[in-house]
Write a protein that binds this DNA or RNA. Sequence first.
DNA 1: ATGAAAGCGCTAACAG
DNA 2: CTGTTAGCGCTTTCAT
Lengths: 335, 335
Amino acid sequence: MQNKVTIKDIAKALGVSISTVSRALKDHPDISESTKTLIKNFAQEINYRPNVLALSLRQQKSHTIGLIIPEIVHHFFSSVISGMEDLSYREGYNIIICQSTENQFREAAALQTLIDHRVDGILISLSKSTQNFSQFKKAIEEGFPLVFFDRICESVETDRVIMDDTEGGRLATEYLINKGCSNILHLAASSHLLIGRYRRDGYIQALKDHHLPIKEELILKCDTQEEVLTLQNHLYELLPQIDGVFAVNDSTAIALIQILKKKGYRIPQDIRVVGFGDGPNATIVEPALTTIEQKGYDMGRESVRLLLQRLNNPSASISYQTRVFPPTLKIRESA
Amino acid sequence: MQNKVTIKDIAKALGVSISTVSRALKDHPDISESTKTLIKNFAQEINYRPNVLALSLRQQKSHTIGLIIPEIVHHFFSSVISGMEDLSYREGYNIIICQSTENQFREAAALQTLIDHRVDGILISLSKSTQNFSQFKKAIEEGFPLVFFDRICESVETDRVIMDDTEGGRLATEYLINKGCSNILHLAASSHLLIGRYRRDGYIQALKDHHLPIKEELILKCDTQEEVLTLQNHLYELLPQIDGVFAVNDSTAIALIQILKKKGYRIPQDIRVVGFGDGPNATIVEPALTTIEQKGYDMGRESVRLLLQRLNNPSASISYQTRVFPPTLKIRESA
DNA sequence: ATGAAAGCGCTAACAG
DNA sequence: CTGTTAGCGCTTTCAT
């Protein structure tokens, strides 16, 4: 941190009081035009910039938003950040980003760090491993507004921004059924991850709606590219009885497509595959992936919007809101 | 920001002075063990947390690093952030991220914001449009340590973390030549972007080394997926005389591969394609992309390391360093 | 071993 | 219209 010029320096140089400088710089009506211009010009000249730290301390408001995110290196999450950044930047807020790297302890440490920094509010998407939510409740009680997005937590009452994951799962699965599939494998996320549970619920609901049997052995916990490779042999055993796959995310779907092709399966003729996310990879894989679109950028913006709404009306106790983004199916060639 | 408990509250509650509390909490030797434990226990009980803002103001050190990055939604850049975040987190620094979105004005505003926040140092990768660098020089003069990474600026003397882009371009092109290509198209970035110029220089050098003619019409400014589509017709005209392509980045290479395939060209038999970056898409496209590996995570870590080295030795005037990461060619199927 | 007081840079209530 | 003063939460010098 640097020894930059302060209002004290300006006051001394111009032979006025510190408060006059402070007021002049913020166009306080009490100050005469002449002194105002004098001070402003001088400030500009010597390149004066207020110390945000001092301001924050004084005003008990840091104009900073904390963000806790599982992994930046995921198209969805980086789109979310992009949306958050764009809006908060415009509204004069900065974002401090912490990655949990899907680790609950690091997530808890990040929360503490953000609180220590007296951020004005916190945006969070839970790590896969988080099972204890007391620290979030405590943060809210202490007066830190929280907004959960995507990977939310039902037991914490607060603002939320989510997709309709159940409907997404249902849509994807129903599409497969309408295409004639009746033995549909679901590559699922861990069921304590809410988005994982909901997408699976949607899958089950679609099967039920169409009077198809629900087979537990066709629901496989497998939600990363790496896991597809690990479970490769098990997958190969299952494949002969399968005519469709709904994968909980694009990268899993794509990894599966790759091993399917290696085994000589034709997609979509032999097996249809639907993903979830619609990242940039979806149009690169062959056949191009049919998948559920997930609007990361918009969800990011909306999360900030909800938070700012609360920050800008600290008194008004707005009731907690949940914004639900409807899923849309992007039909391409894989299903 | 919240009305959290302060050392003043602790002092009042325990009937000691503020300074005693302050000292006890940081294990000052002057304080007796008994008062120390008393104070520490109480602080823990009421969940005391120091106000980082006050600390920063007092110590003239914010323990915060500023980052200016063109676009978060790029695999390379998000890997870089990941590496930065991991290391700085461990060292007790937080990162404030600002996107320039490839816009020089927004970049300048971001720099100002970070300076206003009295970050301890700044990490930056230039936007494509930046042509004026005076603000960076000014920041350094004002005492803000800067580290440029990837998209650096030669006219600003400071620490740098880069790849050997010239060598990368040379390697890629030479590989094509060794595979028998003699009419190699280069999809290039704007030449005022240093990485663009260097990669092109490498391309030219390889041609020279192998006594091949350099044809200006085979160097095409085209560095995004969108631009490939825009230039589609022009590309189609060029293709008949082409047997190899070196693209300045993966996404351009992949977009090209897609339109090549649409036109019936076989890759690599008819045209060989090499990219630059080795992002996750490189193994998804078919044929899998031969490309230059770019170690984003490591470059991010190294940038923070250089910066911390300077922050931790404020007196020692270490001479500016440039870390150069050697490129490696990932050979796959496209060339 | 502990406390009083000044000050980091700024704002705002109170005086004049 | 301008100045004086207190204080945001904390550290640290100087007393005691």
